[in-house]
């Protein structure tokens, strides 16, 4: 068995054991949250880390997934799974729509355009009260499984599946093309890579995965308010990707885990939670641009 396989099997076993090792309802909830954050970090990493598109609107797709699935279930009586498929589709389609012209934009322009998209989405959630209940929020949302361990298994299972698929994809020739676009768009085009197509592809897939994560959020929290999908959420997702190490597979996973648990451990300090994100983001960019993955590599090199 290769080292990869061994790591994989060990991770699965740890995941399976986790809800029984950490048995209090509160910490089980944090586990679910962590799995969801991993999913979000993976989705954003595909767009920022592998394709080099600075997308600050990921919170919007997360929100669209959450609202579409919840409204379909609550107002139209859809089955949860069917609603989830529709929600993922809606997030993906909107991602594609935004990508349709965002692919022509680069760097700062894309950052601001996606930020603008996130603001618009947030405003729609607040103002379209007939459908979204506005700031009053939607209450009494049931998760697809009531047992917290089952919910964790579901979300973690999906996160593992998504991880494996993206990992395969980025090691495949598609990954070569995406990274080529990230490094230099003009020379990517000079090799026959249709940059608009592949950028839109990454954007759309990233949006769909964020939408998928969004499907599980409302049932887990029980309520749904627009503030959960404020642009600050985009920033926290980005912090996870950067702190872990963007453009690597394991980095964003580690980033999501650390930045989910660290603030929980420091919960007594209130407002410090987001300050930690801010400090971590700035310091990592300044001193360790490759994130935790880079730090680990450096450490290993020194120990040898």
């Amino acid at each position: 068995m290769s080292a990869r396989r061994i790591y994989f099997v060990v991770s699965i076993l740890v995941l399976a054991a986790l809800p029984w090792l950490i048995a209090t309802p509160y910490w089980r909830g944090i586990l679910v949250l962590c799995a969801m954050n991993v999913l979000l970090a993976l989705s954003l990493n595909l767009v920022i880390g592998y394709t080099g598109q600075l997308n600050l609107g990921q919170s919007a797709f997360f929100g669209i997934g959450a609202y579409v699935s919840t409204i379909l279930v609550k107002s139209y009586g859809w089955n949860f799974w069917l609603a989830a498929v529709a929600a993922v589709g809606a997030a993906g389609l909107l991602g594609l729509a935004l990508a349709a012209f965002a692919v022509r934009l680069r760097g700062h322009y894309l950052a601001i355009a996606s930020l603008g998209f996130a603001v618009i989405t947030y405003q729609v959630l607040v103002n379209w009260e007939n459908v979204t209940q506005g700031v009053r929020g939607i209450y009494g949302i049931m998760p697809p499984f009531s047992h917290p361990a089952a919910l964790f298994y579901l979300v973690a299972g999906i996160a593992v599946l998504v991880y494996v698929l993206i990992d395969n994809l980025v090691r495949s020739p598609v990954g070569d093309s995406l990274r080529a676009i990230r490094e230099d768009e003009v020379s990517a085009a000079s090799l026959g890579i249709n940059r608009a197509l592949w950028k839109a592809f990454a954007f759309c897939v990233g949006a769909a995965i964020a939408g998928l994560a969004g499907c599980f959020y409302p049932g887990f929290v029980g309520t749904l308010v627009p503030d959960a999908f404020n642009i600050v959420e985009s920033f926290t997702m980005m912090a996870m990707v950067i702190v872990g190490g963007m453009g690597t597979m394991i980095g964003p996973v580690l980033g999501a885990i650390v930045l989910t648990f660290l603030p929980e451990l420091l919960r007594g300090f209130g407002e410090l939670r987001l300050m930690i994100y801010g400090i971590a983001l700035t310091l990592v960019v300044l001193f360790m641009p490759g994130g935790m993955v880079q730090a680990w590599m450096a450490l290993r090199a020194r120990l040898r």
């Binding site: 698929l165 990992d167 395969n168 994809l169 090691r171 495949s172 020739p173 598609v174």
Partner: peptide, 9 residues
């Protein structure tokens, strides 16, 4: 789908 399933060919 081959890229999704097998990764690096």
């Amino acid at each position: 789908w081959e890229y999704l399933v097998y990764g690096d060919t």
